[in-house]
């Protein structure tokens, strides 16, 4: 059975709670990045690139029906390992999740709890900000129709 958004978030939080220094936290992020399902190389094209300054992020997201209602499903990747770890967190808490969970989830607050916010906020520079916006916009579009 697939794990709920809350369960996945709790797993990630537990992994981070074991470490209090930055090198170890980044190590957790890098390991999370390795768990991200591979993205089709052909999808890593300019039209799927999310604008960012220092690293590239690509994402393909779609709205799909499921027995429990619409979900947002996406695949994504980054060329930087630490950014890939953040992409992996977003993938775990958002991809395949019901639109209502996606809309309610406060990603900034979550990263703050993980102790990542001070360094790795979803800001415009790393492209993840646009990624979150895109996922939330897709979720919202389903919400409107429901």
């Amino acid at each position: 059975m697939t794990r709920s958004q809350a369960e996945k978030a709790a797993d990630i939080e537990e992994a981070f709670s074991l470490f209090d220094n930055w090198e170890d936290r980044y190590q957790v992020l890098i390991d999370l990045g390795k768990m991200l399902p591979p993205m089709n190389a052909s999808d890593k094209c300019d039209s799927n690139r999310v604008s960012g300054c220092q690293s590239n992020v690509w994402m393909v997201a779609t709205l799909q029906d499921s027995p429990t209602g619409p979900v947002v499903v996406f695949s994504a990747d980054s060329d930087a390992s630490i950014t890939r770890g953040l992409v992996s967190i977003l993938w775990q808490v958002f991809s395949g999740q019901p639109v209502s969970d996606i809309l309610e989830f406060d990603i900034d607050e979550f990263l703050d709890r993980l102790g990542l916010m001070s360094h790795l906020s979803m800001n415009r520079r790393n492209g993840l900000f646009s990624m979150v916006l895109r996922v939330k916009a897709l979720a919202a579009s389903a919400g409107v129709g429901a």
């Binding site: 980044y26 220092q54 060329d79 390992s81 630490i82 360094h119």
Partner: peptide, 10 residues
């Protein structure tokens, strides 16, 4: 093949 951003951050 280390990304410059990873290098700087670590």
């Amino acid at each position: 093949d280390i990304h410059a951003l990873d290098l700087g951050t670590l």
